[in-house]
Simulated scan of single mutants.
Amino acid sequence: MTRFRPCIDLHAGSVKQIVGGTLSTDNTGLKTNFTSEHPSAYFADLYRKNELRGGHVIMLGPGNEDAAREALAAWPGGLQIGGGIKDSNAKVWIEAGAEKVIITSFLFPSGSFSLERLQSVLDALDGDSKKLVIDLSCRRVGEGWRVAMDKWQTITEFEINKDNIALLEPYCSEFLIHAADAEGLQAGIDEKLVEYLAEICTIPVTYAGGGRNIQDLELVENLSKGRVDLTIGSALDIFGGKTVTFEECCRWNESRRGTTA
């Protein structure tokens, strides 16, 4: 069944919630919804105490490595790590305590997908696909979606479709897919994308972008028949949100423990 997946988004060393589409290399026009007074380890420990596994720590640009390590140290083996992951550091982050590494831009040199690079990451993890998550964060192009890289500013030619998903699934244990056009806006999920992901993915997938409340968890569960999990960020009270509490999300997951889709 659909679960709530927590997150720790790191920017300039702090835990933040950012409007995804405003990220850029020089941060011109960056819109921040929330900056926490708490360190990353505070949230990692909170998730650990509530048994919220599968949360992702995302390093949005440089200057976040120390904060990421602090989060992983607070819950070894309980969190995934993404942002700047490549073949040369994937195993380092596993050794630092990450359950899995999340890879995005490294797979798309010059905007084109590289199977060779994907294989190199898997090789760095000793061939263990269970430790790899592929992030296919995307933006809508026409009637479909294409993967967006470099802080979601560069739209690649790689489409989110059945053939491409089938190509990637043998190399990883799950997908993480941010709908970059909806990320941080608290304006509702991309319903068509959620439905489509449930249709074409045969391994676990987490959708992020636009989640506002418990009703959106119900909506994702219904649209995906329980096959897609949902991350809620900016709307959560622990991140300054007003429309859903962390406690509500914990209760949602508790009610679905021991059940299957």
Rank of each mutant, 00 (worst) to 15 (best):
M1P: 10
Y47I: 03
E37V: 07
V205D: 07
R251P: 05
F4T: 00
N161G: 07
K162M: 05
N33G: 05
A71T: 06
Y207E: 14
K131N: 01
A44E: 13
T206W: 03
E174C: 06
N33A: 05
A166S: 06
F108E: 15
Y207R: 09
A73Q: 12
E159P: 02
L79C: 05
D45C: 02
A198Y: 13
I103Y: 11
A261W: 02
L46M: 13
V228W: 07
S173R: 10
A180C: 06
L10G: 02
Y42F: 09
I165W: 01
Y171F: 15
V57I: 12
A68D: 01
F43S: 12
H11C: 05
D87K: 15
G241N: 11
K16V: 15
F34K: 03
S110L: 15
L230I: 07
I8S: 04
R48D: 01
E254I: 11
G20C: 09
T245Q: 15
G29T: 12
T2P: 04
K16A: 02
N253L: 07
A74W: 11
A90Y: 00
W93K: 14
D9R: 02
F113G: 09
G84T: 00
S112T: 09
A68I: 04
S88K: 13
R48T: 00
P76M: 07
K151C: 08
A67H: 01
I103M: 14
R140Y: 03
L60V: 07
D190S: 08
D216A: 05
E221T: 01
S224W: 05
A90G: 08
R140G: 06
G111A: 10
S36P: 00
E157H: 09
N161R: 15
Q186P: 00
I58N: 04
A68K: 03
I18R: 12
G209A: 05
T25N: 13
F158C: 08
S105E: 05
I8E: 09
T243M: 08
D128E: 14
R3M: 08
P6R: 08
T231E: 14
I155Y: 10
T22P: 01
A187F: 07
L193D: 11
S120V: 02
V19I: 14
S173C: 13
L125K: 10
N161D: 12
